[in-house]
Computed example of a mutant assay.
Amino acid sequence: MGELKYLGEQRYEGLDEISAIARAIGWGASDILRSFYRGEPSTGNLNIQEKTGGPVTAADLAVNAYILEKLQASIGIEDFGYLTEETYQSQTSLPIDHSWVWIIDPLDGTRDFIDKTGEYAIHIALVHQGRPVLAVVAWPEAEKLFYAIKNGGTFEETRDGSTTQVQVSDRNSLADLTLVVSRTHRDQRFNQLLQQLPCQNQRAVGSVGCKVATIVEQKADVYISISGKSAPKDWDMAAPELILTEAGGKFTHVDGQPLKYNQGDVNQWGCLIASNGHCHEDLCDRIQQILAQIDQNA
């Protein structure tokens, strides 16, 4: 493998080869998840464990081990750190002391996986100094894989290896935008926000990766995350963020600030807005106003 270099001004050398490796791993991980999803004898029982942060299954653990093994065998451990949902608690210290860190969710949407909605995904992201520069989001049940490299666009890859560049919609009126929302993870404050937004079209989709895939396929335009007692984690957002932004969208905190990863706290607190970008600032302003009013009346 060639040397990975940062050339300055958000330019990188060597990411194409690493992207090809990550995509192959994404397809392999998809095969493992689909085997568990279908209850094939070779994979065994799901062994569902309900934990504080949500359910964990044998599928999460098997795919986590597979991705780490394949990545580390291909590119090593000297130049890269690894942060995954299933291993972060065993890290001796956070943030991970590397400029280049892989952030991995082996099964985003575990509840959807268990409930058989088909809307689960695999997230693999490489971040450099806290910002994503390479991403893979695999949607096993759709047999699609989305990938992006910083400043290189977003592409959809199918099983036969064919690729198509994808772009967000050009809808640019708040009232015309469609929100992609969760079936669960919706508290009273979030529901109050949804009721007062000018965009009332909604589409229910599970995993964050699947939500963002829905936006880059122009079937929706906006995703909103508001933390309550808990918050989404680095591995929920890192890969989907780059998939969206390289397809022309925007993904920020509600105040317009960028997300940062591998900062020590894996939680992404606050209100996060992902959109097709055309009304992003207006949408953020409107959401800030509505939330301020909701909190004032609480």
Rank of each mutant, 00 (worst) to 15 (best):
D282Y: 01
E9V: 05
A62P: 00
P258K: 00
N172A: 11
L244F: 04
I48Q: 02
Y223F: 05
V137P: 10
L197K: 03
L244I: 03
L68D: 10
E217T: 04
H280M: 02
Y82S: 13
P140G: 04
R186E: 14
K144I: 07
I149T: 06
H280F: 11
L283Q: 15
A125C: 13
T57Y: 02
I294N: 13
I67G: 06
V212R: 05
W27E: 08
N297G: 06
V166P: 06
D112G: 02
W139I: 13
K229N: 15
E13Q: 15
R203T: 15
G130D: 09
G206Q: 12
Q91D: 08
G228W: 10
Q72A: 14
Q202C: 00
G130E: 14
T110G: 07
A298P: 13
Y261M: 11
V136T: 09
H278S: 11
F146A: 08
T154W: 02
G270K: 03
I273T: 12
I273F: 08
Q188T: 13
A62K: 07
E69W: 01
T214C: 13
E157V: 00
F190I: 13
G209K: 04
D295M: 08
D60F: 03
R131M: 10
N45R: 10
V266T: 07
G53A: 15
K260M: 07
G118T: 15
V127N: 09
L259F: 10
M1T: 12
Y12W: 07
F113Q: 02
Q192P: 04
W102Y: 12
K250Y: 01
F80R: 14
F113D: 00
L94N: 11
T184W: 05
L71G: 09
R203V: 11
R286H: 10
H128M: 11
P41W: 01
Q91Y: 04
G277K: 07
R203K: 05
A58I: 03
D236I: 04
G153P: 07
F190N: 14
A213F: 05
E141M: 09
F190D: 11
G153Y: 00
K260I: 11
V56R: 03
I243Y: 02
L197E: 10
Q91F: 09
I32P: 00
E156L: 12
I243K: 05
A22T: 11
N172E: 09
T164I: 07
K233Y: 06
W27K: 06
S182T: 12
V266H: 06
V101C: 12
G228R: 09
T178H: 03
R34N: 14
P140M: 00
S275M: 03
K70Y: 02
L134F: 08
K150V: 09
G248H: 00
I287R: 14
G54N: 11
A62D: 00
E85R: 04
G209R: 08
D160C: 08
N201E: 09
Q218N: 01
S19A: 14
N276F: 01
A274D: 12
D79V: 12
Q268E: 06
R186I: 05
